[in-house]
């Protein structure tokens, strides 16, 4: 993990309600870099986020629309954000439900731009 990656991820976790921010290898679902509150299962979030992104890529391929830029999985107990993070990478954030979705989305897109 480079200092720049760490700084970018730390900026995401500063957004209120964000529990973890992870840079993930899109094909493997492995953690490349992370910034997380204590006790957060970043390995699991990375693996599942990458898997979901792979599955949903079939949708955009089928409908001939551009690759996914942002995905948000909403659940009763929290949310999983995934953004395309550059060459073969994904930016993932796990949050609670009491979070400003627009702010997290912008933080991820900003981070993706800084990493590219």
């Amino acid at each position: 993990m480079t200092a720049r990656e760490q700084m970018v991820l730390d900026d995401i976790t500063r957004v209120s309600g964000v529990k973890s921010a992870i840079l993930v290898a899109a094909d493997d679902g492995l953690v490349v870099a992370e910034s997380a509150l204590e006790g957060q299962a970043t390995e699991a979030a990375a693996a599942f986020a990458a898997r979901l992104a792979q599955r949903l890529a079939a949708l955009t391929r089928t409908l001939h629309t551009p690759p996914m830029s942002v995905m948000l999985l909403q659940a009763t107990g929290g949310q999983l954000f995934v953004a395309a993070g550059g060459e073969g990478l994904l930016l993932v954030a796990v949050t609670g439900n009491d979070v400003n979705i627009g702010e997290v989305r912008l933080a991820l897109l900003d981070a993706a731009g800084r990493l590219n």
Partner: peptide, 9 residues
């Protein structure tokens, strides 16, 4: 995270 409700893409 509980039960999933929606996926926005």
């Amino acid at each position: 995270l509980g039960e999933w409700r929606a996926i926005a893409i």
